[in-house]
Design a protein around this nucleic acid. Structure first.
Lengths: 379, 379
DNA sequence: ATTATATCGTTAAGTTACTTGACAATTGAA
DNA sequence: TTCAATTGTCAAGTAACTTAACGATATAAT
């Protein structure tokens, strides 16, 4: 819409373009030439030359070998990997993943351990700290080398407070100053983000959604969240809680959800709903590989996924059913957003088309033609 | 998100700022000074002086009387109303409204007539033409004075074609070149837009949502549509069909909808659902003012609204019920978008809190606290 | 081997659209 | 009458591009 009031941030235009240049270099494996950057950013070679000169003197970018043929060989540019290291922390509902990488996003090591997010920050955060230190030891790095850390959590972020705000599946974490905690530990810039939003940006940068302007990333785990990339920008809403697809209503009188309502998507297709349905089926005496797990109350969503992969019919049916419910929610999302791509992530997406087919079919069926024809759904 | 690739549109920066200036003048009743424009657009007085000089020589803007006190009086600027006139056409499912205004958005006259949109463009468009000519005659204007026309339709727009694409409630209009048709008639720039999107921009510019950055406008009529203003920009999606809230699923096994699915919002809270429920109630012999209308099949949504205003209990219940369903859908929208305001428009919104209260209650109840606390719902 | 052609990166001059800072014009209040 | 407060304007300066020419390499053709 052209009726937006805005002015050019004159003092920072160069900063924007510098940032865009760095991102472009980072997200192009194998390096990229000045001319190619100029083409993609719609600037002239001369302008890029100047920006690159700055970045090279800052030692953020370095020149590597030449590339193609057809004339003078372009000089490949890449992020200087020796500038420092980066820590990534993925705080899930049931698992914690810590990851170490260098500045060019090369992974140097990672650790995954089971946790229960509802133990609260006082118990969990020290465990995160231990895990980070173990990872640093194991990969022969030291804390002083870390020059940035990123944290992903399954709840809405209050940016100003550096905390999560009234999260539906993170009991005890409301308003806890997570960023401050890690700031004291790492002593370097900390970025706290919603896990699904990170997924959306990740897919846009490296994955299936590369370069797509309107993209939704739906992360299915214990909870269900989504990250929205609209008009090429991450959209977070007024208070940073946009994309909470897990608690939109599918059935006005559906089953009870942990958030207190009835018929939420999460109550029909979330990790707990899947394990619950499996438990019920086993208790009812249905024939399935899952009967091997005792007591049946201990069946997890991951067990169901594994059984489905091994060909277990009951598990496959449960997942197809969840996929169909997810499809209904995604159809609503498609009607509202009209994105060009929806990417389904999380553990269930690993079983592939077995889960994705019911999703696709339901979306095709339940969303308007104008929108459903434009959307691609993948993992 | 800072990882967006963009470059300053150098050739058009000035055009942007000029446009922003014009908008600011237009949307400030009583005129605005150069200094105030400079403050709001975050530019210097000198820059604004230059832009204003251009606009004044173009005769688009003119200087009026002085304003306040406290120093030298600022010179008020306003849009030159004598530059030309503008036609607005609102093509609803059951009614057509044509409106004539001058350049400063002062309404000079309007006409409303009942139509049936499903008669198709071949029948309807000539009637629009007649109505426009009648309005021009009645207000003493001529076709040659018109220098712009805006058209609102209740369906998704295909901008490149100047037409609507597979609209759920506009049978026979698919891909009909509406813009071309009016271009031949008016011979001036035509702007074709979705009615709900126009509503969103209108509320943002003049109405309850002035200056709000994340705004959803929900238009409840025969169909239900919505216009989305995200990050201060109108969001239309990949193919221009974003905001189709009318066909998101509320009940997976709900009643049949005209779009072919089950349990769409429109099938539960749209104009046709309201009149249908009233007809059924009368046929079942319930006591209501609506029994006066014969045959009961002829009861319209507007009749139900009128009865509710007169205190009819049945009508009030039907509308409260529809409001509750609408609330469920808006709750989903709030969870996904986290807007700071939702504005409910259309005919039903005229009855005010009687309809809005169930909407508010359901949204409060069904959406996450982080999002529902930030949102205001009005008409 | 030499020349032609193509592409890459750099440099210098020009342009746009601002900002800075000085200044005259206007007004209410001391 | 003088002062302080504002508004609007003007001239000079600046950031961040663009244009255009040029030198540096590389492959392909003669």
């Amino acid at each position: 819409m052209s009726t937006t009031f805005w002015s050019i941030p004159t003092q920072s235009t160069r900063a924007w373009n510098r940032h865009a240049t760095v991102d472009l270099i980072r997200f192009t494996p194998g390096g990229i030439s000045r001319v190619e950057i100029a083409r993609q950013l719609q600037l002239t070679r001369a302008a890029i030359t100047e920006i690159i000169n700055e970045l090279v003197t800052l030692r953020l970018v370095r020149e590597v070998e030449s590339l193609q043929a057809g004339g003078r060989h372009p000089i490949a540019l890449e992020i200087n990997p020796h500038l420092g290291k980066v820590i990534g922390i993925d705080l899930g509902a049931t698992h914690l993943t810590v990851l170490l990488s260098d500045f060019s996003a090369q992974v140097l090591g990672d650790i995954e351990i089971p946790i229960n997010i509802n133990d609260g920050p006082e118990k969990i955060l020290p465990r995160v700290q231990e895990t980070v230190q173990r990872l640093l030891r194991e990969s022969g790095s030291s804390l002083s080398e870390i020059c940035a850390a990123g944290i992903g959590v399954p709840g809405p972020i209050v940016i100003s407070a550096g905390a999560v705000g009234s999260p539906p599946i993170m009991r005890g974490w409301d308003q806890f100053p997570i960023v401050d905690y890690f700031l004291k530990f790492f002593g370097c810039p900390i970025s706290l983000n919603n896990d699904a939003e990170l997924g959306a940006v990740g897919e846009w940068a490296y994955g299936a959604g590369r370069g797509v302007h309107n993209l939704a990333y739906v992360k299915v785990g214990t909870g269900i969240g989504s990250g929205l990339l609209l008009n090429g920008q991450l959209y977070r809403g007024t208070t940073g809680s946009a994309g909470e697809i897990g608690h939109i209503t599918i059935e006005e009188n559906g089953p009870q959800c942990s958030c207190g309502n009835r018929g939420c998507l999460e109550a029909l297709a979330g990790g707990r709903a899947i394990s619950q349905r499996a438990t019920d089926a086993v208790l009812n005496g249905q024939r399935t590989l899952l009967s091997a797990i005792t007591p049946p109350q201990m069946i997890t969503a991951r067990d169901v996924i594994n059984a489905a992969r091994s060909g277990d019919l009951l598990a496959q049916n449960i997942l197809a059913d969840a996929g169909s419910h997810l499809g209904t929610a995604i159809a609503s999302l498609v009607n509202l957003f009209n994105p060009s791509m929806v990417i389904v992530g999380g553990n269930v997406s690993q079983i592939g088309d077995l889960f994705l087919e019911p999703v696709r079919r339901t979306v095709q069926h339940r969303s308007l033609a104008a929108a459903s024809q434009a959307v691609r759904i993948t993992t």
